[in-house]
Amino acid sequence: MLFVNKPYKQHKLLFFCCAIVLSLLLNTAIAQTKWIRPETSADKQMWGIHDGIVFSLWPTGVETGDHGTGGPRGLLRIGYEHKGKIYLINYIAIEPIVDGKIEFSEISPSNNDGKWGKLIWASDSESDDAYNPANISHGLISHPDTNHPQIEQLTLFLFMEQYLDKASPFLKISIRSDKPEEICFEINNKANSAIMDRCALTATMGNYSRLRLLHLNNEVVDSRKLYSGFEGIDFIEKDAYPVTRMLKLKDGSPIALATQNESMTQLSAWPSDSAYYAKRGWRYRPDFKLTQYWRKDGKAYDPSLQVRVNGRARYWALASRDAKKYVAVPGGAAFENFELREKYYPGQKFIYGLSLKSVDEILKQ
């Protein structure tokens, strides 16, 4: 009997070992395919997670099919992958404030060629901050939660040219596998930086999604009512909202959320005349809607924290003063810039979200 059972036991042990190895290989493959990131110099400068948030740097376009045609420099392209396709949703600008004056990353001239827009580049190291367009940042994979080792985090650093006001901020960016609809920005400054009052990170393209509803703790602010009667070609702005007006998550984290007021049919429709045909890039392309939000992580934040929005009634036309180059946003004025403001301190974090969930579903998390 022992002689008969011995091969059986050996085969069973071999099968068990093979199953473990196969499981490990499968888990490794899943981990490798979970993330979107460049592996070689020929790959797009794009980082993110499947079925979640994705971002890219100039000149790489984030949207599927966009191979990079230049576009605005000095901005992070923020996209969302849904059913295997990536859609551009917004841009994020980096705007340091020194001695009360703001400088815009997409307008401030490059120190390299004098053209609009600061050059921004990625690195896997906080110390490797020299501009090198040939450098490839893969992003670092870590396990941030020891109680849940299956959770992964993709982290990289973004550096930019020094601003005219001598501000030198840089960003540490992270995306967690258990929170694929969020991207965390940690702001720091290089040693040679001027002292910053604030360093604003602002989502600059709310008109593309036609964001019109700002959700606060005691009201929903409607851009059409807030900017009633405004039809100009410039931005319009009212007072910011203090942190006391912000909604809170279950853990006390302040959060501000912006949504659309239109149905998908209304949102995807587009006027047929020639002026709008020339502006068709503003037509909303996804076949789904997203809640956009900014939040702080936890209860620790400076009392200066506020929500700031401004609006536009007409689509941006490269700062031209010719009103004929502008077309009205269908449905009325919408929020264009959307951000949290807070007194600057090294290591401060802002979390930006793009979610398929409703406001109520997000607040219940």
Results as ranks from 00 to 15, higher is better:
residue 199 C to M: 09
residue 199 C to H: 03
residue 200 A to R: 06
residue 201 L to R: 01
residue 201 L to V: 06
residue 205 M to V: 12
residue 205 M to H: 11
residue 205 M to G: 00
residue 206 G to V: 02
residue 208 Y to Q: 04
residue 209 S to Q: 13
residue 209 S to C: 14
residue 210 R to C: 01
residue 210 R to L: 03
residue 210 R to D: 04
residue 210 R to P: 07
residue 211 L to W: 00
residue 211 L to D: 01
residue 211 L to F: 12
residue 213 L to N: 10
residue 213 L to H: 07
residue 215 H to A: 05
residue 217 N to V: 08
residue 218 N to L: 08
residue 218 N to V: 01
residue 219 E to V: 08
residue 219 E to I: 03
residue 220 V to T: 15
residue 221 V to M: 10
residue 222 D to S: 00
residue 222 D to L: 04
residue 223 S to Y: 04
residue 224 R to I: 14
residue 224 R to G: 00
residue 225 K to C: 09
residue 225 K to P: 03
residue 225 K to S: 14
residue 227 Y to T: 06
residue 228 S to T: 10
residue 228 S to Q: 15
residue 229 G to D: 04
residue 230 F to I: 08
residue 231 E to M: 12
residue 232 G to C: 09
residue 232 G to T: 05
residue 232 G to R: 00
residue 233 I to C: 06
residue 233 I to K: 04
residue 233 I to E: 03
residue 234 D to V: 07
residue 236 I to K: 11
residue 236 I to C: 11
residue 237 E to L: 10
residue 237 E to W: 00
residue 239 D to I: 02
residue 239 D to S: 13
residue 241 Y to A: 00
residue 241 Y to L: 05
residue 241 Y to G: 00
residue 242 P to N: 09
residue 242 P to L: 05
residue 242 P to G: 09
residue 246 M to G: 00
residue 246 M to P: 08
residue 247 L to V: 06
residue 247 L to K: 09
residue 248 K to R: 15
residue 250 K to H: 12
residue 250 K to I: 12
residue 253 S to F: 06
residue 254 P to S: 05
residue 255 I to L: 05
residue 256 A to P: 02
residue 257 L to D: 03
residue 257 L to T: 01
residue 258 A to V: 14
residue 258 A to G: 11
residue 259 T to G: 09
residue 261 N to I: 13
residue 261 N to M: 14
residue 262 E to Y: 11
residue 263 S to T: 15
residue 263 S to Y: 07
residue 263 S to Q: 07
residue 264 M to Y: 08
residue 267 L to V: 01
residue 269 A to R: 02
residue 270 W to K: 13
residue 270 W to C: 09
residue 271 P to H: 04
residue 271 P to A: 08
residue 273 D to F: 08
residue 273 D to H: 10
residue 273 D to Q: 05
residue 274 S to G: 04
residue 274 S to I: 13
residue 275 A to S: 14
residue 275 A to I: 07
residue 276 Y to N: 08
residue 276 Y to T: 03
residue 277 Y to K: 15
residue 277 Y to H: 15
residue 281 G to Q: 12
residue 281 G to L: 12
residue 284 Y to H: 01
residue 287 D to K: 15
residue 288 F to N: 03
